[in-house]
Design a binder for these strands. Sequence first.
RNA 1: GCCGAGGUAGCUCAAUGGCAGAGCAUCGGUUUUGUAAACCGACGGUUGUGGGUUCGACUCCCACCCUCGGCUCCA
Length: 605
Amino acid sequence: MTIDADEIAEDAGAALASGQENHLAAMRHSAAHMLASAMLELFPDARLGIGPAIKDGFYYDFDLPRPLTPADLEQLEAGMRAQQAAALAFEHSQDLARADAVRLLEERGQPFKVEIVNDLPESEGPTVSFYRHGGFEDLCRGGHLGSTGELGAFKLLNTAGAYWRGDETRPMLQRVYGTAWDTQAELDQHLWRLEEAKKRDHRKLGRDLDLFSFHPESPAAPFLHPKGMALWRALEDWSRQVRTDAGFHEVRTPSLVRKELWETSGHWGNYQDNMFVLDDYDHVSGLKPMNCPEEILIYRTRARSYRDLPMRFSDYSTLFRKERTGVLAGMFRVRQLTQDDSHVFCRDDQVDDEIRLALSLVRTQYAPFGFEPRAKLATRPDKRLGSDEFWERAEGRLKERLDEDGMSYEIDEGGGAFYAPKIDIFIEDALGREWQMATIQADYQLPQRFDLEYRAPDGGFERPVVIHYAIYGSFERFIGILTEQYAGAFPLWLAPTQVAIVPIADRHLEYAESVRTALAAAGLRAEVDARSERMQAKLREAQEQKVPVMVVVGDRDQEAGAVSPRLRTGESSQGVPLDEFIADLTARAASRELWPAAGAAGPAE
RNA sequence: GCCGAGGUAGCUCAAUGGCAGAGCAUCGGUUUUGUAAACCGACGGUUGUGGGUUCGACUCCCACCCUCGGCUCCA
């Protein structure tokens, strides 16, 4: 629902290209007009903001005398249905010179609309257009249905606060979100998808699957339970393997650091308000929000030679960020996070190769997960260090590497870090919200601020470049995303419990335990369900916990030294020799394949 | 931080100013079972926290904490 709303708002008119997408956009934009019309009936003094079509629906922003209630939404919906039944034509009612439009909108008491007209660029031409349906007329570029009767199935979903023009210094308006589709069946399906998404919510699954919990005693910081930690470690092992293969060396740096370091790095100036600052006797210290300055201190512990470079450090220590309370969200946005952080110190002529390496490591590390990330090139922000020439060059180099790699990407104008442009990788959660995972940054600023150098072949001193990257991003966020991607049904290599052992009767407990020992010796995470329950109940429990593989052990298995496996998908077999079973599972876990079918959690729910 | 909504047993939910309840989970007992829920019983609560109104508050009012949906932010 947050997908580039403002961008689409800007383009509401241009949405009239061709095809089904544009038909839907026109319909949703028309629905927004109908919502505004209904709102004016309910609140004649309502001031209108903008009302664009967005992914799956539309919204309209209003300044109202009081907060909207669910009952208001019903009434607004009723008003829209009345317009729908009346089949009112959408007409291009008039084109006015800017000054006349401003006068008209002022008369109508619509200051936000006046502001829109005043801020339209000259390139938009000397006049602005108005569109009308029934008694409602709105400033608009157009792009509507023929009449309100053509609106398909729709529903108003919720309200939310939204700053006028997305600026937190401007008034907060009430935004009404709605969804609209051609048919009732499509609307029902959309609403069903929203319900299904709630079942995949990592906050619910994290509790149901006993992965992690949150507590008011430490808000916005997960407590990792044994199962969550097993998942974490599987991810960490994989990350370490990728780094080790690529010639990284792991370091570990302190959490508590005196502020002088952050002053040198520039973080104190830019992020002081978002740091946890502590009293340290005669000094002020902060909990680290970043690892980079500390990696730099390690670099500076001896005189470096061009022969030492590139020097690749990885660091899995925990970072602390005092995020504003309203931005916190389960595992997606926490106040303590652990990155698979990487810093490469290299010569300027090695930067291209190091960025190539970083991009290839992103591909390698993401390969087992089976999702398609989206890349963005984030360019120079307003608040930044360094000259325009530097940014030009740094952005250009990242862009070249992306183009060369063939990874598709979009440009995130002004989205860079204060010291460097970034390549960011985004993945969607269950609700379709995008979250940043990997980030790659080529940094020329910190080396300068810390006066880093190395001895060059000609005997002179040169300044190294630091390439920063994290591939999972934060483990917390990655675990949240993975949980939602797989709906808790993790592939074998990640599953906290890989094998649930189900003894049929108490007399099989000893054999069950010997099976567990054999699996554990092969590096597999297995648990025996020793409860005095029926086999069916134990299978149901394992199935609900989305354990990928269950094995039933009874008299026949015990005699044969075998197990009778059942997969999460429902597939089962009997009397498989234990060594054969272990060899098969070990190979599958080692290959990190998506098996058994991810997300297939069987019936129930 | 801002706008709005919410918080009752471990979980899902009931009780609208008058004795806080159900199912599941947990625990005890019985049952010893061949691929998604055996049976019987018991325990479980300062209704997020602190104030206030009232004869009486889960219910009404205020403050705070936490969570959720957005907005803004995200080194």
